[in-house]
Simulated scan of single mutants.
Amino acid sequence: MSSSGPTRAAVFRTRASAPFSRAVPTTGITVYGCEQDEALLFREMAPRFGVTPTITEEAVSEADIGLAAGNRCISVGHKTRVTRATLTALSRAGVKYLSTRSVGCDHIDVSGAESVGISVGNVEYSPDSVADYTLMMMLMAVRHAKATLRRTDTHDYRLSGIRGKELRDLTVGVVGTGRIGTAVIDRLRGFGCRVLAYDNRTESSADRLSLDDLLRHSDVVTLHTPLTAETRHLLDRRRIERLKRGAFLVNTGRGPLIDTEALLPALESGRLGGAALDVLDGEEGIFYTDCRNKPIDNHSLLRLQELPNVFISPHTAYYTDHALRDTVRNSIINCLDFESGNT
């Protein structure tokens, strides 16, 4: 994770030792915001692709433009916003392509990139990582896992108030049926529950409904749609009020899909059964950092964490061995495809 202090993080330059199988010339890529596990994979994979990576833990910023000198392609993480000012500086340094190591591009000023002649590409990784995690969160929510674990941690082994539900008895609404949403639907089949879907795609094995109808009929709603200007606060106060009484909400997509300030009273009043949130509006600067000894400037997060029916994890659904290898490999391939004119 990038640091905000003045100390420069370590920068590693790894020379390619083996030619890429397609016999492309050696290519330089600057990898920003690269943590240790990613750096190990870049060092392992880059030589196989004929790539010379410059690797830094620092997030891309105007102060780090010099690290991109001589490289037309850079790779960035999803944890830091890439502003128009930074993109302008990158363009002046000769950068023409930015590959984000994420499915979403909402942390990048894409229109700003286009205006300065930088193309932006995302990556695909194993949808199973997020789909598996989504099912885990869903089960934890309907079985009141947080409240149960809190009790047992204090040696309170009573069962009152923690009777759970079985997925086969519930209707699950899946909002967004791309690769991850479809993988979630595939897993839900094994539980025998009814599955509803909302998306603008034409193919889905689930029953398709309008979003408002899906919210009215679902016992569990799980979000897998991309974050865009149209989907920001997709679940606003009006739509949260349409959720069934006692329903559970799961979000492993993007935090701003939900209006947190509208969600809180529905949870605090008990009108909703609970929520399992791997992402949160305003998570930037909090998730991926050690906040044990500093104040957290997100009152919504603090209120949510106090609730026994809300489970929160720090944007980690994607974080598996398989998905991380996919991410690094595909970020390298994106850059090579750009250099060879295949994008």
Rank of each mutant, 00 (worst) to 15 (best):
H224N: 14
S300H: 14
I240V: 07
D169H: 15
P19L: 08
H233A: 04
V60M: 13
P265W: 07
L211R: 08
V60G: 03
S119Q: 15
I185W: 01
N334G: 04
E306T: 10
D207F: 11
P295R: 11
I312S: 01
S204G: 09
F248C: 06
V31G: 03
V221I: 11
E38S: 12
S115M: 12
R158H: 14
G104L: 07
N334C: 08
T152G: 06
L149I: 15
C73Y: 03
Q36Y: 09
A275R: 00
T177R: 01
R48N: 10
L98P: 02
V11Q: 09
V120W: 03
G77V: 06
D199I: 03
T222L: 07
G104N: 09
F49A: 07
D199W: 02
V328Q: 01
D64C: 10
F12C: 13
K294V: 08
E268V: 09
D207E: 15
P265N: 09
P19S: 09
R254T: 02
D236V: 04
E35K: 11
L139E: 06
E241D: 14
E230G: 09
T327G: 04
S102Y: 11
D236A: 09
V31T: 10
S99F: 05
N309C: 13
I333A: 02
E284D: 14
K79P: 06
R303P: 13
V51T: 06
T225K: 04
E35V: 12
V95E: 00
P127H: 11
R163F: 14
A266V: 07
D186S: 09
K165L: 15
L234E: 01
L302R: 12
E261L: 08
K244H: 07
V60I: 15
A145E: 02
T54E: 10
R163Q: 13
V120Y: 05
S160A: 15
V31M: 09
A69Y: 05
T260Q: 02
L257F: 04
P127G: 10
I65V: 15
G273K: 00
V60D: 02
A276K: 01
D37V: 15
E261T: 10
C105S: 12
F191P: 00
T148D: 02
P53Y: 05
K165Q: 15
R168V: 06
R271A: 07
T52D: 10
I333F: 03
I162F: 07
V120T: 11
R238P: 00
R237Y: 10
S331P: 04
G181I: 02
T52H: 11
D213G: 06
A10S: 12
V184S: 00
L90K: 02
G161T: 14
L336G: 01
E38L: 11
V31H: 03
R232A: 03
T289M: 07
T54S: 09
E62R: 12
S21W: 14
A68V: 04
V76P: 03
G173A: 08
F20C: 11
F12S: 14
T152P: 02
T14Y: 10
D153S: 15
M137D: 00
